[in-house]
């Protein structure tokens, strides 16, 4: 069990954060720390815009950082569960990224 960092890019909509936090409790995972901000500098996220063929507007999307202490297998399960949340655009751990539901074997966020 080691502490790991998850990064999410998600729609900045009412209730979206509650879905992520609720999922951790519902599935029996623990959150060590959590940080959320609306994204203002889109430069690091241009690849998402290219992928989705859209242009983010200021205030539309948030970046979420969560630290959690779990083993490998559970980490994969957490990533997959978060990826299922409808408002999550991308989620990444150190090794992989789900971008709009498609798995990439690198941390893109």
């Amino acid at each position: 069990m080691i502490q790991r960092k998850l990064t999410l890019v998600m729609e900045n909509k009412p209730g979206a954060l509650a879905r992520v936090v609720g999922l951790f409790h519902q599935r029996g995972y623990n959150i060590d720390s959590l940080h959320v901000d609306p994204i203002e500098d889109f430069e690091p996220f241009r690849f998402i815009e290219d992928e989705l063929g859209i242009k983010f507007q200021v205030g539309e999307v948030s970046r979420l950082t969560i630290r959690t202490t779990v083993g490998d297998k559970l980490m994969r399960q957490i990533l997959r569960q978060i990826n299922k949340l409808i408002e999550v655009i991308a989620v990444s751990d150190d090794e992989s990224t789900y971008l709009k539901g498609v798995l990439r074997n690198e941390n893109l966020l």
Binding site: M10, E11, L52, I54, I86, E87, V88, I89, K100, G101, V102
Partner: peptide, 8 residues
Amino acid sequence: NIRSYNPP
């Protein structure tokens, strides 16, 4: 059109 939802 839900840009963040794309089931396989």
